[in-house]
Simulated scan of single mutants.
Amino acid sequence: MSKPWWKIPLLNRSGVIRLAILSIILLIVIFGAWFLMIRMPGESYHGELPPLTQKEVTLQNALQQDVEKLAGEIGRRNYLYYDGLIAATDFLERELSQAGYKVKRQGYEIDNQTYYNLEVEIIGTEKPQEIVVVGGHYDSVYTSPAANDNGTGAAATLELARLFAGKQPARTLRFVEFVNEEPPFFQTDDMGSLVYAKQCRDRKENIVAMLSLETMGYYSNKIGSQQYPFPLDRIYPLQGNFIGFIGNLGSRKLVHNVVASFRRHAKFPSEGATLPHKIPGVGWSDQWAFWQQGYPGVMVTDTAPFRYPYYHTDEDTPDKVDYERLARVVAGLEQVITELAGNKVR
């Protein structure tokens, strides 16, 4: 006589064991993913922001002047507004020259128009063959004046170059203003940072770190102001009041070093992650170009479309940028770059 259906075990003993093993494996995978991709050294700053130092006030004013020049006076600057793009090129080159640098123009042609990456370099005193690259793109998207994306990154690159002028880093330092990050060149062979990174690889240069400064100037303490692609929305803060450091899985060590350094020296909220580059947003800037050439790279960002309501619109104007908090971030990056360059922060 057979057993009634309600008395038949759902799983036999071997099935229970297999289910337990699978559960353990799943937990290990989840913990491993958290440990490898999400867990960062140090602690993000919490609490009221301290008053700006006099140096940070000066930096705030300089950043605002730069962004207003690029996104206010010059405005649209890309392949459709080529005169504006060249005006931005000339402005950045002039300012870098006045800071004491010899500026290298890396020009290349697309449809009978020439586009320029701008590079300045400080040769390392102890490890000149090891190179740290800091850069941001200065072109705009379509008809946007592009104050935050990416006037802030271009201005931050310029101001950091000024801060390091005359210093003697152990490693070689390069500051690069990249062209043609935005569509239709985004993640194509004509993307300025990819043209640059390929040339570095062709010369067999040893780039040990690349910081991509991308859309860095919008912050909000409002709950719900920060969005994420799933499943990151279950992990990270819902207030868009932090600066993010994002790398691919191959850049994990660099991301950890950068986050740890920033948290040691900057009293400003920060989050970091090393994620597969296929996740939306992870590869959406110039660090992607360096990943393609096997170099480690980190994007420094306010997370752009996941926070900034004016992303890629005509409303991305200089008045939307929080220059005080941008100055705090750039001041923190100065210390990060000092350590990446092999020097001690004083």
Rank of each mutant, 00 (worst) to 15 (best):
P184I: 02
P184N: 04
F186T: 01
D189A: 12
D189Y: 03
D189W: 07
G192I: 02
S193H: 05
V195K: 14
V195M: 10
Q199K: 14
C200K: 13
D202W: 07
N206D: 14
V208K: 05
A209W: 05
L211Q: 00
S212A: 14
L213R: 02
L213T: 12
M216N: 09
M216H: 07
Y218N: 04
Y219I: 06
Y219N: 01
N221S: 12
N221F: 07
N221D: 15
K222N: 06
S225H: 11
Q226P: 00
Q227V: 00
P229I: 02
P229S: 01
F230N: 02
F230L: 06
P231R: 06
L232T: 07
R234G: 01
R234I: 09
R234S: 04
Y236V: 11
Q239S: 10
Q239H: 07
F242Y: 15
F242E: 10
I243D: 04
I243S: 04
I246V: 15
I246H: 01
N248K: 00
G250N: 15
R252Y: 09
K253I: 04
K253V: 11
V255I: 12
H256I: 00
H256L: 04
A260E: 14
A260T: 00
A260W: 01
A260D: 14
S261P: 08
S261Y: 06
S261C: 09
R263M: 06
R263L: 04
R263V: 04
R264K: 14
H265P: 01
A266Q: 12
A266H: 08
K267N: 07
K267W: 00
S270W: 07
S270I: 10
S270G: 06
S270E: 05
G272I: 09
T274V: 10
P276F: 13
P276K: 09
P276R: 06
H277M: 04
H277R: 09
K278I: 14
I279C: 01
W284R: 03
S285K: 04
S285T: 12
W288R: 08
W288F: 15
A289Q: 13
A289H: 11
F290E: 04
G294L: 12
Y295L: 07
Y295P: 08
Y295Q: 10
V298I: 12
T303Y: 10
T303W: 12
A304D: 13
